[in-house]
Amino acid sequence: MMYKEMIGKKSSRVKNIVERGMVKRFAASIGDSHPIYMDEEVGKKSRYGANIAPPTFPRTFDYGTVEGLHLPSKGLIHGEQIYHYVRPLLVGEEIYCYTEVKDYYDKTGKNGLMGFLVTKRYGEDLKGNLIFTEESIVIINEAVREALKV
């Protein structure tokens, strides 16, 4: 079983920057153009001392690739998404990101056999302190599995 063998595997850490322009555009695209994300003065005076990024912004980071993990580009269903924050992300800061395959299991439902792939992504400061985690559960349905032969 291809995905089961991947459990526990991680990508190498990739350095990312919480880019000001990206944060501004991302916030606008979810209808959330609040000064805490983009007005430098508001950021400086805030309890964070800087602008912050919206909680779902980590979607945009590069987490590297887990060797041997191949996901189809089509037909996946996003089942669940779980964020945990130690503190908000600050605009302009550099972070290290990586991803880990947490789990894989099958379930038979009314739509036939489905596979559930659980991945967990991590964001750390440059000293290695955790800032956030982002866990995703992606459902791979039978038609997609057939195409992948898994």
Binding site: R47, P55, E80
Partner: peptide, 15 residues
């Protein structure tokens, strides 16, 4: 609007 009081620590969603 409430970031001066705190922040989102956990956010779990099922689609």
């Amino acid at each position: 609007p409430y970031y001066e009081e705190g922040f989102i620590q956990d956010y779990k969603i099922r689609f």
